[in-house]
């Protein structure tokens, strides 16, 4: 009898496992915007009350400001942000031929600062970098996330998927266990979102500040009591690559407000 029970249990486990490994089906996908309360939605919808738009305004000023004497501003090369940056945030991270690895939007801005503007790169999560990120992300508002089909990114994306399914920290939880299997349920009084990166950089109420996707990911890692990956680390960019593919086709709503 006992072996039979074990076999039945094993059979059940195998039947359930592939389901767990699967992503959320397209018709069940909900962005963080759709899962939050009406008051926060209203705050995001109105550009005046959305605090992340203050960051965009700062970004607009930075866009045309020369970083140093004799150096070109962003506008000097990219001209009007509304035309040159349309859809850019929706297709990052991209492949950087120079370093032969994937690069995210913040990394690309930093690269421009050091290599082309000849200034020191603004650190990640600094107000200056977030302002430029928010300005560029705004130019993709309403556009579908278009994960790059570049075959050179395939390996990194697969590593990102593996990280998404890997258990971390003292709580021994993977991203997938919360965001694929238990989304919509309560966790400490808040609803677990599906983890779609549609709105970054976001103004998060809990932070009382604008922050990037990497800050959010590091936050989650700290939450499961793991040592978070360093800002700008390849692992975080690989997770972002996978997340963008996982959410491909969803509309961008950056810069968003989240609880």
């Amino acid at each position: 009898m006992r072996p039979l029970v074990s076999i039945v249990m094993l059979g059940l486990a195998m039947a359930v496992l592939p389901l767990h490994a699967q992503d959320i089906p397209a018709h069940d996908r909900l962005s963080g915007f759709e899962m939050m309360g009406a008051d926060v939605q209203a705050m995001q919808r109105d550009d005046f009350s959305n605090p992340a738009m203050l960051s965009v305004r700062e970004g607009e000023q930075l866009w045309s400001r020369a970083p140093a004497q004799g150096k070109k501003s962003c506008q000097g090369c990219h001209h009007d942000v509304a035309t040159s940056m349309t859809g850019v945030a929706a297709r990052y991270p991209a492949f950087d031929a120079g370093s032969n690895r994937p690069i995210d939007l913040a990394g690309r801005i930093q690269q421009c600062q050091t290599e082309r503007q000849g200034v020191q790169a603004a650190p990640r999560e600094s107000a200056l970098l977030l302002a430029l990120q928010a300005l560029v992300a705004l130019q993709s508002r309403g556009m579908p996330i278009a994960a790059t089909a570049d075959p050179r990114l395939a390996a990194a994306r697969e590593r990102g998927q593996a990280l998404f399914n890997q258990r971390f920290g003292q709580l021994n939880l993977s991203c997938a266990q919360c965001h694929n299997q238990n989304w919509g349920k309560s966790l400490g009084g808040t609803r677990i979102p599906q983890g779609h990166p549609t709105g970054y950089p976001i103004f998060r109420m809990e932070w009382q500040a604008v922050g990037s996707l990497q800050r959010r990911l590091r936050n989650c890692l700290t939450g499961v009591r793991a040592e978070p990956f360093a800002p700008g680390s390849p692992e975080l960019i690989e997770i972002e690559l996978y997340l963008m593919q996982r959410s491909a086709g969803m509309a961008m709503d950056a810069p968003a407000v989240r609880p």
Partner: peptide, 9 residues
């Protein structure tokens, strides 16, 4: 009238 200002508070 509405007003908003960027400040960390």
């Amino acid at each position: 009238l509405k007003a908003i200002i960027a400040h960390p508070m």
